[in-house]
Simulated scan of single mutants.
Amino acid sequence: MASSPLGRPTRGTTGTNRLRRNDRWIAASAAFRRADDPLVVDLGYGASGVTAFELTARLRRTRADAEVRGLEIDPVRVATADAQLAEVRAGRTPFPRDLRVSFARGGFEVPLADGRRPAVIRAMNVLRQYDEEDVAAAWRTMATRLAPDGLLVEGTCDEIGRVASWVDVRPDGSPLRFTISLRLAGLEHPSIVAERLPKALIHRNVPGERIHALLTDLDREWDRAASLSTFGATQRFLATVSALREQGWPVLGGRTRWRLGELTLPWEAVAPVAGP
């Protein structure tokens, strides 16, 4: 247990299924699937341990040996999560009793016993309250705790998990990829994600910045593909992403991921003109 955790307590907003899109991303990642030790840290899980329970349940569908460690700075939140875990162990929740999940006090230093290094550290909705200038240092501090082939996933989502974005960060603290993940049903414009960009990008959505150009092009192609709405929002989004790629945007992945409402690009494609 860390005596002086690094960082500040999050606002604590927690909701069932809020991070399901991010859970799915982590479960599909090579860092998790190929890890010798499939330990994932849910850093800053909030006022309830539910996101850690959900993450563990979803990860073990991919690897039965998946384990999640929830970390929070606030000891009251750790006590709350431990009480919830007791309910899980007693079989009084929808979660399997034998979930490999635990909770402890900790922050950006990611304290773990026995020198363990997580395959993935997830820090969603943690850096929103920080200054943009703090982001790179926070990335580096967390990333140094990763396994050699590990991944830090840092980003933001809305309260019900329909709009999200995140950055994949390498163990050396450098950003690797940027992902937007949207619920396509009922989506008016993809640029709604502007309100939920990671801290490194949220203040850069202005003319002259790459993220602004991406969201502008994304909305334009979404509008152009409006006729495909007859066949569903998924087909419209597939056409939108294909058009972006044809224009030269270095879109990663393929239709399997795009169907989920995901758009991923190398970090360099959206990086601030001067920044992390």
Rank of each mutant, 00 (worst) to 15 (best):
F103L: 00
L252D: 05
L187D: 02
M142S: 03
R60G: 01
D74R: 07
L39V: 02
P175C: 03
Q129M: 11
P276M: 04
R105F: 09
V241E: 01
V68E: 01
D42E: 06
P148R: 08
L187M: 12
R259Y: 04
G70M: 05
L263R: 10
E133Q: 12
P207Q: 11
G186D: 01
G173L: 08
E268R: 06
L43E: 08
P207K: 00
W139A: 02
S229R: 12
A274S: 11
L201N: 12
A136K: 04
R145P: 02
G173R: 04
L152I: 05
G261M: 09
T56C: 15
G173K: 02
S191K: 04
R196C: 03
L228S: 12
P96L: 12
E246V: 04
P266N: 13
I202T: 11
T156F: 05
A79E: 15
E209M: 05
R21T: 09
A136Y: 00
F95M: 15
Q247W: 00
M1G: 13
T156N: 07
R224I: 10
T14A: 15
Q84S: 15
G254S: 08
L184M: 09
P111F: 05
L151Y: 04
L184G: 08
L176M: 05
Y45W: 12
E54S: 09
W222A: 13
A143W: 03
D82T: 12
E133S: 15
D217R: 02
R97N: 13
L197C: 11
E209C: 04
T93H: 07
T216H: 13
R34M: 07
M1P: 01
L112F: 07
L85V: 08
I121L: 11
G46W: 03
W139Y: 14
T10S: 15
V135A: 09
N22A: 14
L215E: 14
W25H: 15
E195M: 01
E133R: 10
V120K: 06
G186M: 03
R145H: 13
V206K: 09
T10Y: 09
T62W: 05
N22V: 11
V76G: 05
R220A: 15
G115S: 07
G12V: 06
A86C: 06
A147M: 06
